[in-house]
Simulated assay, not measured.
Amino acid sequence: MCGRFALTLPAEAMVQLFGAAPANDLPVLPNWNICPTNAVHAVLSEAGTRHLASLRWGFLPVWYTSPSDGPLLINARAETVAEKPAFRQAARARRCLIPASGFYEWTKDGAGNRLPWYIHPREGDLAAFAGIWQDWTSAEGDTLSTCAIVTTQANEALGPIHHRMPVTVAAPDWGLWLGEAGHGAARLMRPAPDDLFAAHRVDPRVNSNRAEGPELIEPFGG
């Protein structure tokens, strides 16, 4: 799964990188500890135009009567995303890219303590996670744009840390995932190459969703 991530690249740089028009309500950056239900940056493509938008991380099916009506859907499994009633329409028609500088996963020591790891691209400043999105409307008529990160089986390099990882879309395939380049996005839902990411232990302070600061992603030897 992917339950926390970081994004440190300025919005202006992502606008240029993705060729996307920015929304006016983008979340504040940098953010070293992005948590479920936070607003996240996402690249959408509508009518051939890309937008850098703000979405709530936590996908809301249309039948939810409130944001807390059911399970918090922050991830969608690649193996079933096209079949699950909550996700299948979005998987076909509302795919997005969710930029990240890296993400966190946890192992446990012999005493059961949670040991956080920061996983980040070996080269470059950014990964683009596959996502799906959907507008949810409350009974009062308020609209909330929401998303989930698509995950798949971990590759051999990251398997010892966690059995799942985000689907990561390479730059040449961005258009295919966004629906700009025809059909075939399903073939992108596979583990990343073993050499794409590096991982190191980080301070257990990140176990708290209130922790902040660049030191959260620094190597930790304790």
Rank of each mutant, 00 (worst) to 15 (best):
M165H: 05
A170D: 14
P22Y: 03
L188C: 10
R95L: 10
G112E: 01
R187C: 09
V169G: 06
N75K: 02
E212T: 15
E123M: 09
P30K: 01
W57K: 04
V167N: 11
A100T: 03
L7Q: 08
A128N: 09
D69K: 01
L178R: 01
V150T: 12
I161E: 06
A181D: 14
R77S: 11
G222T: 06
I132Y: 01
E218S: 14
Q89Y: 11
M14V: 00
P27D: 11
S45R: 11
T65V: 09
P85D: 11
G124N: 12
E83H: 14
V28I: 12
N24F: 09
E212S: 15
R50F: 01
T80F: 01
G110T: 11
R92S: 13
I74S: 00
L17K: 13
C96L: 10
C147W: 00
D125M: 04
I132D: 01
T151M: 10
G213D: 01
F197S: 06
C147R: 00
T8D: 09
G58Y: 03
P85K: 11
A171Y: 02
I161S: 03
P204W: 09
P99V: 02
C35A: 15
W177G: 09
W177C: 05
P166S: 02
L176Y: 10
P193V: 03
T152L: 03
Y118Q: 05
A130F: 01
A157Q: 14
P204N: 10
T37P: 04
S45F: 05
W133F: 15
R210Q: 13
G110R: 13
Q89A: 13
R77A: 13
C2V: 14
V167W: 00
A171G: 07
F5W: 04
L176W: 07
A42R: 03
D69R: 02
D135F: 06
A111W: 10
V167T: 12
A192F: 13
S68V: 05
P204G: 09
G131I: 00
R77F: 09
A86K: 00
I149D: 08
W63S: 10
L188A: 12
Y118C: 08
A111N: 14
A192L: 14
N207M: 07
K84Q: 13
L72Y: 02
F5T: 00
A21Y: 05
I161H: 08
I149W: 04
A90M: 02
Y64L: 00
P191R: 07
L178I: 06
H41W: 13
